[in-house]
């Protein structure tokens, strides 16, 4: 097998130029997934009527279907439904004008939101609930107790899993190409396809993913360490 090193040298920066797209997809999808996952975990935990069973159904639906299928439904079928709805409502919006990146955000956040909800629920179980009563007995409101006491501990407990969710998301962004959003994998496919140098192009992507994920894992690890100071203490004598 002959490897075209000059192609790699010229393609790597071109592919890396799309790294911001990959990162933006990751960050936005994670933000959406985190908010949605947190709300679902709360709804289920507080057994809120209607909402709680709905969340459970949504979660098993997403968990039980491949991401590829979810992308197909969101990108290929949802616009038809939306277009029909918009026409009925008499609105003047063309669904086909919508930037496909929005579909990517939604599609990518589906699975991640379910994982976040599960991580948060597990985290909630690990936090001693007596602290909630202690907070209430000090005259704090339920929301103050949640914000100051429970939430930071829940997130700290969920951090290792959340780290995995972020890494999974980074990898999943390569599927955005199916929704005509060009990120690093997509660009590699285009460049490699032009001159039939797929192997070299994908080698570039491989290297970029390895580096990015290593950096992100390191950052998550530092963050986790920082957040969990209270679990280890700061006085080494004890």
């Amino acid at each position: 097998m002959n490897i075209d090193y000059s192609f790699i040298v010229s393609a790597l920066p071109k592919i890396a130029a799309f790294l911001p797209v990959t990162l933006k997809l990751t960050v936005v999808a994670f933000a959406v997934a985190f908010a949605a996952g947190l709300l679902m975990a709360l709804a289920i935990n507080r057994r809120i009527k209607v909402l709680s069973p709905l969340c459970r159904i949504y979660m098993s639906l997403i968990r039980g279907t491949p991401m590829l299928l979810q992308i197909y439904v969101i990108y290929n079928l949802a616009p038809y439904a939306a277009a029909a709805f918009i026409e009925k409502a008499g609105l003047d919006i063309n669904v086909y004008d919508i930037d496909p990146v929005w579909y990517a955000y939604i599609a990518l956040s589906l699975t991640a939101s379910v994982s976040v909800a599960e991580a948060v629920r597990a985290g909630m179980q690990s936090v001693h609930q007596g602290q909630r009563e202690a907070g209430l007995s000090m005259g704090m409101s339920e929301s103050a107790v949640f914000i100051h006491i429970l939430f930071p501990q829940v997130i700290c407990a969920a951090m290792p899993v959340i780290g995995n969710i972020v890494v999974d998301l980074i990898k999943a962004t390569s599927l955005a190409f199916m929704m005509s959003v060009t990120e690093i994998t997509g660009e590699a496919k285009i460049l490699g396809g032009d001159v039939l140098r797929y192997f070299e192009a994908y080698l570039c992507v491989f290297v970029i993913y390895i580096v990015v994920i290593a950096v992100v894992e390191k950052m998550m690890h530092l963050l986790e360490n920082r957040m969990s100071v209270y679990r280890r203490g700061v006085h080494s004598s004890t």
Binding site: A134, G135, M138, G139, M140
Partner: peptide
């Protein structure tokens, strides 16, 4: 039932500020 994520001092002051 001390707040595990708060120091001794914060355990006491939190009730005063937030409560």
């Amino acid at each position: 039932n001390l707040f595990e994520n708060k120091t001794a001092l914060e355990n006491i002051s939190l009730g005063l500020t937030a409560g």
